[in-house]
Amino acid sequence: MDTVILISQVLMSLALILAFVRVVRGPSLPDRVVALELFASIVVGLVGVYAIKVDVSSFLDAAIVIALMGFLAAIGFARFLERGGPRDD
Score class of each variant (00 low, 15 high):
33 V>Q: 05
65 V>C: 08
29 L>T: 12
18 L>C: 09
83 R>W: 09
14 L>A: 09
47 V>E: 03
88 D>G: 02
22 R>V: 05
76 G>F: 09
17 I>H: 01
68 L>K: 03
39 F>V: 02
54 V>E: 03
18 L>Y: 13
77 F>M: 13
13 S>C: 10
53 K>M: 12
83 R>M: 12
37 E>D: 14
74 A>W: 08
85 G>F: 13
57 S>T: 04
45 G>I: 01
19 A>E: 02
24 V>S: 02
13 S>P: 01
25 R>D: 01
89 D>A: 15
32 R>M: 07
34 V>W: 09
24 V>M: 12
9 Q>Y: 04
6 L>C: 02
55 D>H: 13
61 D>N: 08
4 V>L: 07
82 E>T: 15
57 S>W: 11
57 S>K: 04
7 I>E: 13
17 I>P: 03
87 R>I: 06
34 V>N: 07
71 F>C: 00
84 G>H: 10
12 M>R: 05
45 G>D: 09
70 G>R: 03
68 L>C: 13
19 A>Y: 00
89 D>L: 15
75 I>V: 15
66 I>P: 03
85 G>T: 08
18 L>K: 11
42 I>N: 00
87 R>V: 10
45 G>P: 02
31 D>I: 04
23 V>W: 05
8 S>M: 10
48 G>T: 11
20 F>W: 02
25 R>T: 09
81 L>A: 06
1 M>S: 10
46 L>M: 13
56 V>D: 15
7 I>P: 07
74 A>E: 04
51 A>E: 10
53 K>E: 15
53 K>Q: 15
11 L>N: 00
58 S>G: 01
14 L>K: 00
84 G>I: 07
14 L>W: 05
84 G>W: 08
22 R>D: 03
60 L>P: 04
50 Y>I: 14
67 A>P: 03
42 I>E: 00
81 L>V: 04
13 S>Y: 07
6 L>E: 06
32 R>V: 08
14 L>Q: 00
78 A>F: 09
18 L>P: 06
64 I>C: 07
74 A>P: 03
14 L>D: 00
82 E>V: 15
16 L>Y: 11
73 A>G: 15
80 F>D: 00
69 M>W: 03
16 L>M: 14
29 L>Q: 08
3 T>E: 13
15 A>N: 04
62 A>S: 11
2 D>T: 09
52 I>N: 09
48 G>N: 04
53 K>N: 13
15 A>D: 11
47 V>F: 11
61 D>S: 12
43 V>H: 01
84 G>Y: 07
88 D>M: 06
16 L>G: 06
12 M>D: 05
33 V>D: 06
26 G>E: 07
13 S>A: 11
52 I>C: 08
70 G>E: 08
57 S>N: 03
29 L>Y: 10
47 V>N: 03
7 I>S: 14
72 L>P: 04
45 G>E: 10
59 F>Y: 14
48 G>C: 07
37 E>Q: 13
50 Y>H: 10
52 I>H: 06
55 D>E: 14
82 E>L: 13
1 M>D: 02
34 V>R: 06
25 R>Y: 14
46 L>G: 02
88 D>K: 08
34 V>D: 04
22 R>N: 06
27 P>N: 06
78 A>P: 01
42 I>F: 01
62 A>D: 01
87 R>N: 11
89 D>F: 02
83 R>H: 13
12 M>S: 12
7 I>L: 14
30 P>I: 06
87 R>E: 10
77 F>N: 07
